[in-house]
């Protein structure tokens, strides 16, 4: 509220309303590059395949905390029907490279150093996770997540 008031006073106009994505909403565009240099778009995603889109950062302690759980889940389910898309919101790409050398992720790591995808997806904090299929949000979660949460979501999606 205070931010809105300040924005109205300073800028003379209300800030754009924050996007809050829920299950059933259309997924916004990806529009960012991965660490191999490939630009990802929604239409790059395979038909009927489920993607776990996780916004994270190297400096995020909660991300580190849930990483073993998420990674174990992804390794178990990855295949023709499911893939992980890790979206790094690090603006220091040298730090990201260090992390990647250690973690050696098997899935695509997308980069959003100027937070353009983050803004489109209404993400204000990390970690933030979404299950997406055919351009539609199936499930979303902000903050910590457990193996049970992921399995429950998986079942709820009928997978």
């Amino acid at each position: 509220m205070l931010t809105s008031l300040v924005s109205i006073l300073v800028l003379g106009e209300a800030p754009p309303a924050r996007v809050v994505l829920k299950a059933g909403d259309k997924a916004p565009e990806l529009g960012v590059m991965d660490t191999k240099g490939v630009t990802w778009k929604l239409n790059s995603l395979k038909q009927d395949k489920v993607y776990l889109v996780e916004f994270w950062a190297t400096w995020c302690t909660t991300c580190k905390k849930i990483a073993p759980t998420v990674e174990a889940f992804v390794r178990e389910k990855r295949g023709d029907k499911f893939e992980m898309l890790a979206v790094s919101v690090d603006d220091d790409l040298a730090e990201l490279r260090k992390e990647l050398r250690t973690k050696k992720p098997e899935w695509p790591v997308l980069m959003d150093p100027d937070f353009s995808m983050m803004n489109r997806w209404g993400v204000v904090g990390v970690p933030r996770l979404f299950f997406v299929r055919n351009g539609v949000i199936l499930w979303e979660r902000e903050g910590e997540v457990s193996a049970e949460d992921l399995r429950a979501a998986w079942s709820k999606m009928g997978l």
């Binding site: 590059m33 660490t35 191999k36 240099g37 490939v38 990201l96 050398r101 980069m111 150093p113 100027d114």
Partner: peptide, 13 residues
């Protein structure tokens, strides 16, 4: 060659 994308991502401004 290791992580080309991390070197070529161009900001929009």
């Amino acid at each position: 060659r290791e992580f080309p994308g991390t070197y070529i991502a161009m900001p929009g401004k």
